[in-house]
Amino acid sequence: MKPRHQRALLIVGGLAALGVAAYFVLRALESNIAFFISPAEVVAGKAPKDKVFRIGGMVKEGSLHRQDLTVRFVITDTAADIPVVYTGILPDLFAEGKGAVAQGKLREDGVFHATEVLAKHDENYMPPEAAHALEQAQKAQRTLAKP
């Protein structure tokens, strides 16, 4: 074996070993790397008690109520709903039916008291006309699906 083959083998072997190590580290850290947890996980009791955490999902349609600077809404992942109360300014993209991430504490009454609310948008980009057409098509489909 030539020295350069030996070195190449050493590099490949080293990288493979590192790859395996990285895989195990990431698996072990999995729950800590998640930026937020879903309402279903909160209901399942995976939320830390009396500690600040982030909850993420969709803002439920028709659940948004404003009173001065205090807003109440329900965050949902369709499997479970968590009511949220927050006082402060919301990002422009925050809206019903859109993604949001709230940071705060879950009180004993089951209401999530948020200290920060962020909007999470999706990866779709299109002109407003296209979005409108898409919405119309979905509406038509829904009315067709009704008996």
């Binding site: 998640a34 993420g56 999470k120 990866e123």
Partner: peptide, 24 residues
């Protein structure tokens, strides 16, 4: 893809059609 992130998913990937308008 692996974790919950605030950053949205990829709009362009090798495995499926891009979720963007053509000119964009």
């Amino acid at each position: 893809q692996w974790w919950n992130t605030l950053h949205q998913g990829a709009s362009v990937s090798l495995t499926r059609a891009p979720s963007m308008a053509m000119t964009m």
